[in-house]
Nucleic acid binder design. Sequence first.
DNA 1: CCGCGCCCTGTCCTTACGGACAAGGAGTCA
DNA 2: TGACTCCTTGTCCGTAAGGACAGGGCGCGG
Lengths: 218, 218
Amino acid sequence: MSAIKILLVDDHDMVRMGLKTYLMLEPAFEVVSEASNGQEALKQLRSGGEEGLPDLILMDLMMPVMNGVETTRAVLSEFPGLKIVILTSFLEDDLVVDAIEAGAVSYVLKTVSAEELIYALQGAYRGMPVMTGDVSQALTRGIRQRTVQDDSSGLTEREREVLLLIAEGKSNKDIGEELHISIKTVKTHVSNLLMKCELEDRTQLAIFAHRKGWVTQG
Amino acid sequence: MSAIKILLVDDHDMVRMGLKTYLMLEPAFEVVSEASNGQEALKQLRSGGEEGLPDLILMDLMMPVMNGVETTRAVLSEFPGLKIVILTSFLEDDLVVDAIEAGAVSYVLKTVSAEELIYALQGAYRGMPVMTGDVSQALTRGIRQRTVQDDSSGLTEREREVLLLIAEGKSNKDIGEELHISIKTVKTHVSNLLMKCELEDRTQLAIFAHRKGWVTQG
DNA sequence: CCGCGCCCTGTCCTTACGGACAAGGAGTCA
DNA sequence: TGACTCCTTGTCCGTAAGGACAGGGCGCGG
């Protein structure tokens, strides 16, 4: 049986180097191409490349131009048979859920040793997720949070707008002017926000939005 | 002249691999040892190692046990002659300032190519900082912010306490009870905070504190 | 000793906030 | 058409917030 063909996608040259060194330990793998972001990866897949399609993509999450989650979705919609393994430095509940939801087989941390990575890749090639305890915990936690968040995302478009302005420190009057609505309406939205989010005042709303990461530069 | 001896410090096995591959391109460098965190690095330096002390340390910022900034300080206090180059994924103003303040010669992003890294290391070995435009911009921005922050840290101990409670969404009454002072006093502190921080209401104070990273889990 | 800064407490007053409640107009869906 | 949601505007009312101002106690350095 021929070697498993791998496409590496990472914006760090350095990491790609390290990965190749890792994978050279195991003759069962062969790095057939590389890309530094999702768009490049897609281009390479479409052009076919000299060695044909890879069997497996090993991809970073955080990349410029097109990140890992978007890329995973895009790749799988065009090449449904491909196995994708996400490789990242960050163990955040949301990211893990996003990646798996997008169709990635496994989620591996960059702290892994060569042996662990190879084990995970061999599993992924067979369609079997191999996750360390940390990751699977993050996944379950993330899913739980996600469902809760969906509830609290019973917020309407307008309410979210108001919430973001509150999170920027605007007063009701400011918000009314910015959205071209009366201050009375703003107050209604704020009241609804307080009810839905189960909070007590606008300050808590602002903190809430920041904690959720809904505010730019927070 | 013999090769420049380098100690690699990074918690990612993978990154160390990549770095070694990078550095193999240039015979002027020799990786004499590795460590996965600051404590290990210090241990290795103290024990001397088989090949004697390195000339240069190439170190990640974000590491478990002992991070890059702490390690830089610790290393330089014991081995003042060593050149330290920080290698990291993050371009944050504060981090850059911290690193340089701690005594690092250069601050290099993990996105660099092999050539750029080698150039930076050769510069660092001669004590000359080599920074890309991004980094030097972050440095100047960071220094400006730092001085501003020091000004706004004209806050008294009590005021900081009140600010943190505001940033947790507490009302004046809550704060008074928590600090065992009357609500009147709390209001005085809040007024002073608003004046000193040049803000308009408690919500903006809360956001301010969060942006400054003064709040746990923010 | 006096001045100074910080902390505490207080009053008076205005404004912003937020709850309870009602209600019209627009759009969607069955 | 009716039921529904959302956005909108409004009123009434109580309370929280915050500005302006005055003053007492305490510790510290000149």
